[in-house]
Simulated scan of single mutants.
Amino acid sequence: MKSSRGFTLIETLIALSITLLVVGGAYTVFNSQQRNTTVQSNISDAQQVVRSSMDFMAKELRMAGYDPKLSSSFGIRDIHLRTYDLNTSAAGYSFIEFSWDKDEDGIVDNNEITSFSLYDDSDVAPGTNALMYGTSDSARQPLAGYITAMGLAFAYDFNGDGKMDTDAAGDIIWAIDAGNDNVWDRLAINTTASPPTVNTVSTGTPIKMQHIRAIRIWLLSRTEAPDQNYTDSNTYIVGKQAITPNNHYRHRLLDRVILCRNLGT
């Protein structure tokens, strides 16, 4: 005779508890993996944005001063600090305008004058800045979103000896026009401090655009979405700025030196 005995209430509760533990554990693992995947995807996007932006800027800036007709009409035109609306201001941000002879006719056309700047563009990058690219024959266009900051500094050959000017220790002088007064101000960067610091020290050397031989670029990007389980308390040196985000976004900094092969020739 077959038994008709089923599960007791205690057995059912034990089975249900085990099932909930297994399902709960699986959900925890899945949720953690999904969050990590999202974080890594956001980081990858931020890295790609800053790399592609840097590559484009480097390609363009290497052409600054290209002048096959030897017209002496092409080169770096302006490095004054500017606001997001391109008004000159010592409290502004890095900006550069330069030209090169794209059609090799020795005449500066409007489409041969290029600029890079930042803009607080909520349409392109809500809550942060966009890297802008412009020519004189058209309005500035966003090159990349979520570029938190851009820094530019310049190495120059003031004494005309064919070498970039150095300090007493033999280090290249990287400088900006911090006061928009046409005098070079050296960037004094201390990466051994905690947090790192940067200051500007006047060199007393007047700025001549034709003396510029190299450009140093810093680009700081951030993820599009925040990670509430992370706070970025790092300090990033971006040109004249020391930036400590203290927010839930992850940031990526890229620093590159561009030799201006068409300047000083």
Rank of each mutant, 00 (worst) to 15 (best):
S221G: 12
S202E: 05
V183H: 08
V198I: 10
S202A: 14
E224G: 06
G179H: 02
I217D: 01
W184F: 14
N199Q: 12
S233M: 10
I212G: 08
P196M: 11
N180F: 07
D232T: 09
S194A: 10
L187Y: 07
D177H: 12
T191S: 05
M209I: 04
Y230T: 00
K208C: 01
P206F: 09
T203N: 09
T203A: 10
T231L: 01
Q210Y: 04
R216W: 07
D185Y: 08
P206I: 00
I215A: 09
A193W: 07
I217S: 02
L220C: 07
T197I: 07
P206C: 04
G179Q: 15
K208H: 06
L220D: 15
A178V: 02
N199G: 10
N182P: 02
D177F: 13
T197Q: 11
I215H: 11
R222P: 07
T197S: 14
R186I: 02
I212A: 04
D181H: 03
N180L: 08
G204S: 03
D232A: 08
D177Y: 07
T191A: 02
P226S: 12
T231R: 02
S233Q: 11
A214L: 08
Y230W: 07
R213Q: 14
S194T: 09
D177N: 12
M209H: 09
A178G: 06
S233G: 06
I207M: 13
Q228T: 07
Q210M: 07
D181V: 01
D177I: 14
I217V: 15
A214N: 11
S233I: 13
W184H: 09
G204W: 01
T192M: 04
A193I: 05
D177M: 11
R213P: 05
N199H: 04
D232M: 13
V201L: 14
R213K: 15
I215S: 08
L187F: 09
Q210D: 15
W218E: 13
A214D: 10
G204K: 10
N190L: 04
R222Q: 15
P226I: 08
T231C: 01
G179M: 14
S221K: 03
A225Y: 06
N199P: 00
A178N: 14
Y230D: 05
T203Y: 11
R213E: 03
N182I: 03
R222L: 13
A225N: 12
R186D: 00
K208E: 03
T192K: 09
N182W: 06
A225E: 11
T223V: 06
R216K: 15
A225L: 10
R216H: 10
R216D: 05
W184Q: 12
L220H: 00
T205R: 07
M209Y: 15
G179N: 15
I207V: 15
D232Q: 13
S233V: 13
M209F: 15
R186N: 05
D185F: 03
A188E: 12
W184L: 10
T231M: 03
A178E: 00
T205W: 03
T203M: 13
N180M: 08
T203Q: 12
P195S: 10
